[in-house]
Design a protein around this nucleic acid. Structure first.
Length: 399
DNA sequence: TCTGGGGTCCTAGGACCC
DNA sequence: TCTGGGGTCCTAGGACCC
């Protein structure tokens, strides 16, 4: 039996959500109607485009490009900062609305959901449901979505990407040649900027070219990824809509420094602050981590990382901080650093750990962490900080 | 020209074991 | 002298997504 899948994608999510939030606060300017973007802070060297208005798009401005470039394309571009508290709010509203139609809703990202409507249609058609969702979102929340209708997630996602905004598209198997194969191969999900030239050299320009390419050649050249690409090009995707929120596999915190830092003591300070946040989030999830990883990016945009697997998984601020510091000392080559980050991986849930008993020092540390966490929950994240971070807050902004 | 931050998954090579 | 093959674990790096 063919499945009935919807992909709901918020149009210009960050910009639309910022727009309606501004309107609600009494602004009489709808930034969706002017050349505008949501962007990072250029003075802090985080100046990239996160979302763009339709007019900005017409002027050739692209998501993730430097704001510097965007301004050259449009000198009177209006730039607004991002606010994830607002985005989470609207994302949740949308999610709750979608749950009224089926319990099988997958939150694919902050602004995209998949719905498996197969067993939830009753006497309605999938088109009725898509239309109703589209109209209700617009009327009840004030933003628009694109909806893709198909028999699997990949096709539904490709469909929602067709013409925007505020559109419903289908991509049924018989429509693949006329609607999908004609598109440039770069439009296919998972075909990124490194793969495009490789395919180009093989004479593959459209998704159709890729679909008709010999699968074994692709597998030989790209391994597993070749198989996936070929299947996607042919509209094959058996993956299920995962309604259950998946457990995180790792937690990271990184920052582009407002200025390059070449001093290991200063880098250590930043690292400890980042580690503190990672440990806090880890404990909030009731998890512990086996692997601690430190990532560095030089002023020349060369990235490298160093990691260590622990004998015993940890959620302790002190342990993660100390390991991270040691990793930094082992790997830092002395160049000016643009970005520094800490992440933890190989997580396990707290329950499944056999506690090493009689470790009074560790117990003390745990109690301290718990106390701090409670204060953070109650009074805000920056209430209590590790020594040395206080003066750092002036230089860096934390989430 | 200037280039975020959060993730996931895959691969390749070396260490080590039997 | 000449010197296996397979498996697992760990690390580093790279590709992709939003």
């Amino acid at each position: 039996m063919e499945r009935q899948i919807l992909h709901v994608d918020v149009n210009n999510a960050f910009l639309s959500w910022t727009a309606i939030s501004m309107l609600k606060k009494g602004s009489n300017l709808d930034i969706r109607t002017i050349p505008a973007i949501i962007g990072g802070d250029e003075s802090k060297r985080r100046g990239i485009v996160l979302a763009k208005s339709p007019i900005a798009k017409e002027l050739g401005i692209k998501t993730a490009e430097p704001i510097y470039f965007a301004k050259q394309k449009c000198p009177d571009l209006q730039i607004f900062p991002s606010d994830f508290t607002i985005y989470r709010h609207y994302s949740n509203l949308l999610y709750q609305l979608l749950l009224e139609y089926t319990e099988k809703v997958e939150r694919f990202s902050i602004d995209e959901c998949f719905l498996d409507m197969t067993d939830y249609l009753g006497n309605r058609t999938i088109f009725d449901v898509a239309k109703e969702i589209s109209q209700r979102v617009k009327k009840e929340f004030g933003f628009t979505v694109n909806i893709g209708i198909a028999t699997n997630k990949l096709l539904a996602k490709m469909a929602s990407d067709f013409q925007k905004p505020d559109k419903i598209h289908t991509l049924f198997p018989q429509e693949i040649p006329t609607k999908m194969w004609v598109l440039p191969v770069s439009e296919l999900f998972m075909v990124g900027k490194k793969t495009i030239p490789k395919l180009e050299r093989m004479g593959i320009r459209t998704i159709g070219d890729l679909a008709k390419q010999d699968k074994t050649i692709l597998i030989h050249k790209f391994g597993k990824f070749g198989k996936v690409m070929w299947e996607y090009a042919n509209g094959i995707d058996a993956s299920e809509v995962i309604s259950q929120e998946e457990e995180p596999k790792g937690i990271g915190n990184s920052i582009t420094l407002p200025k390059d830092i070449q001093n290991i003591e200063e880098l250590s300070e930043v690292l400890l602050a980042l580690a503190e946040q990672v440990a806090f989030r880890l404990r909030k999830q009731n998890k512990r981590a086996y692997v601690v990883n430190v990532q560095l990016k030089t002023k020349d945009f060369i990235s490298y990382s160093h990691q260590k697997k622990l004998e015993v998984p940890t959620d302790s601020t002190k342990t993660i901080g100390n390991v991270a510091k040691a990793l930094l000392q082992e790997s830092y080559k002395g160049e000016p650093i643009r970005l520094i980050g800490v992440r933890v991986d190989n997580l396990c849930s707290k329950k499944e750990i056999q506690l090493s008993l009689f470790d009074t020092n560790k117990e003390k540390q745990e109690k301290l962490d718990q106390t701090i966490d409670k204060l953070k929950e109650k009074y805000g994240y920056n209430t209590i900080t590790i020594a040395g971070k206080m003066n750092l807050n002036d230089r860096i902004r934390f989430k």
